[in-house]
Amino acid sequence: MLTPNMNYSHLKASYLFYNIAQKVKAYQAANPDAHILRLGIGDVSLPLCDAVIKGLHKAADDQANASTFNGYMPECGAPFLRKSIADYYRGRGVELGDDEVFVSSGASDELGDILDIFDSSNRSLIIEPAYPAYVDANIMAGREIVHLPSSRDNGFLPLPDEDISAELIYLCSPNNPTGAVFSKEQLKVWVDWANEHGSVILFDAAYEAFIEEEGMPHSIFEIEGARTCAIEICSLSKTAGFTGTRLGYTVIPKDLVRNGMNFNDMWVRNRTTKTNGVSYIIQRAACEVFTPEGQQQIHENINVYKNNARTLMKALDKLGIWYTGGKNAPYIWMECPNGMGSWEFFDKLLNEAQIVGTPGEGFGKCGEGYLRFSTFGSPEDTEKAAEKLLELLG
């Protein structure tokens, strides 16, 4: 008799954002005229920039002519895009070969798929609060999870100690959900620890383009020693609005070796077996992101979201509410007022101010008592939400 993957029985009954959607749906049904201010799910609201749109149209036209038509693309990514991404890193002083960049259909896909190249006996350390997919992907794979708690006391940026024992380390900076960013000194502690213990860091850099503070690392490969202990996974979803277009990339240095196995070679073998590559049209459009014109335009959009963050931060400052994030990230992680629980505060915001945030408890036990705001909404809705926060909590 066939046996299903019983690890799925250990998953929570439903995903965090599904629960939020159901609550919002019920409220909207009871209040059909209400304008809900959605600061919960981190989907972008601005359209793709002109450079990307032109790239999409040009690539679509290429597919209409035999001389420029493209069928299957290289499984690890088109050479033109791999070079553009590597050049982006090299422009920040990171030494990287084109063949150390792998093009994917998105960071979320890679964060789960990458587990294929690690033995199932390897334990995964996940800092809480955490992006739920980290936890769920490891549960599905039957992998033991080591939970490292973080808190306001350490700015939600914990460092390793000798009590920790894990082979895979998930680091996300700027962090989802807290918006906190590791400094170079803090990342160096993690890199040194990983090299000392033979562990591998899975570094989620999906929000690196939002870092505005000078000297803060955008990539773990800015840290000495990272090439022998880290894999970086990034995305154009929030950087360039590709949430509906789907493209990301993974960086695996050729220096990353364990037990005589080279992880770059292993990932080449994995991708050439399990994928047929990302479409030519999407890769051509993505290439435009890394041009001077594309960089200028995507940062114009990013600045809209960062202005949204400043609007919310100003309101929270007036209210005297503690928070982290916002400055270098598209998320604001606020402490719930008056000792309220995460879902209790979520319900209060929805029912009394028509504001939707994300309850911190949904990101793990350490998130209880906090709530996450996304800054990807429209400026108008964000301004209105800030006004309503001041009215409700002032």
Rank of each mutant, 00 (worst) to 15 (best):
P132W: 01
I114K: 08
D43R: 14
V257P: 05
L56W: 13
W343P: 00
D62V: 00
R372Q: 11
D87Y: 13
L350D: 01
T228N: 04
T272V: 14
L390F: 08
T243P: 01
Y305G: 04
I302Y: 02
D98R: 10
R284K: 12
S235N: 08
L125C: 13
I20F: 09
A166I: 03
A26C: 04
I126A: 07
L312W: 08
L171I: 14
I332T: 10
M340N: 13
N176A: 10
L2W: 14
T3W: 12
P32C: 00
K306V: 02
F203Y: 09
H147G: 01
L247R: 04
K306N: 14
N351F: 02
I223S: 07
P217H: 09
S342L: 01
N308D: 09
T239C: 08
G277R: 02
K388M: 07
D204H: 15
E212T: 14
S237L: 02
E387R: 14
T375P: 04
F156C: 03
P74N: 12
D204L: 02
I36L: 10
G369I: 13
Y8N: 09
I281E: 05
K12C: 07
L256E: 02
Q296V: 13
T272D: 14
D61P: 05
L168S: 04
V94S: 02
Y27W: 15
R82C: 12
M1Q: 10
F182R: 01
S173R: 14
K254T: 09
W343C: 09
E368R: 06
Y305R: 01
L350Y: 02
G294L: 04
C49R: 10
L168F: 06
A315G: 06
D347P: 03
V200G: 05
A51M: 03
V146W: 13
A329T: 01
R269A: 13
R372T: 01
F182K: 00
F263N: 07
G40I: 03
I127H: 04
S374G: 12
N195E: 14
I282G: 02
